[in-house]
Design a binder for these strands. Sequence first.
DNA 1: CAGAATCCATCGCGATACTG
DNA 2: CAGTATCGCGATGGATTCTG
Lengths: 139, 139
Amino acid sequence: MNTQPKWTPYVSRCPTRFVLDRVADKWTVLILGLLARQKMRFNALLRQIEGLSQKVLSQTLKSMERDGLVTRTAYSTVPVTVEYAITPLGTTLARSLVDVIAWAEENIHAVLSAQKAYDRAREQADAMPDPARRARGGR
Amino acid sequence: MNTQPKWTPYVSRCPTRFVLDRVADKWTVLILGLLARQKMRFNALLRQIEGLSQKVLSQTLKSMERDGLVTRTAYSTVPVTVEYAITPLGTTLARSLVDVIAWAEENIHAVLSAQKAYDRAREQADAMPDPARRARGGR
DNA sequence: CAGAATCCATCGCGATACTG
DNA sequence: CAGTATCGCGATGGATTCTG
């Protein structure tokens, strides 16, 4: 029933790891990015992020709230309205992520072509007869 | 047998997501951090990163190599020696991650105390009788 | 040493249904 | 609307064994 991992042996020793465990997550980064621009309701987030299920969104938001990255505010309208907003802490994290986002956009082509090259090389190696392969440092 | 996900609907449309899928991973960040300082052998990495299994290390390194973040060099010694080194591309990514690492170290206490506060509030809410809870915006 | 292969437990996650 | 609860499966990852 608890969202936090049951056993994390290194937590006490390495802050980076601890924070990475929570932050190095695709959805967290994506949600943070959206909330950094404006506060949003649950279903709005759900619609914005393609491929994210309602279950996972709910989980992720809960743990982000627990970590102090976002706030959850419920208005007693009918039906209920819930707004998620980024906190100052979350904002600083979002800021520290801009470089990574920028890297992603700048280097996606480099990554894609690296993948192509890798796959091509591997195909060749597979087609190559064993002795020839052993002659190099192959496989 | 392939390391890449079978179905990723948004790949073609959002570079950030595509890269995030590969990079927003604890182990990748950790390995990249180590290799940014010096080239290392397989078992050296394995020993440095507590909690990382040999299987996962091998998987992660393979996909990092495919993405062009690291290189793998095998020397035909006995027994075999394999060195992993960061690429220029990997180096730029590592650089873009320093802010996040810094954020983690600076804000771990903030996160931890946010968690404590959250847990405390939640305990109280659970102990609170229903009517009183409904009076506020509780859950 | 640096893995690959096999087996197996668990668990994350999607789909579905239900609720205040 | 904004979730929670339940079910069921496939992917993930650990432990172990084997190899060039």
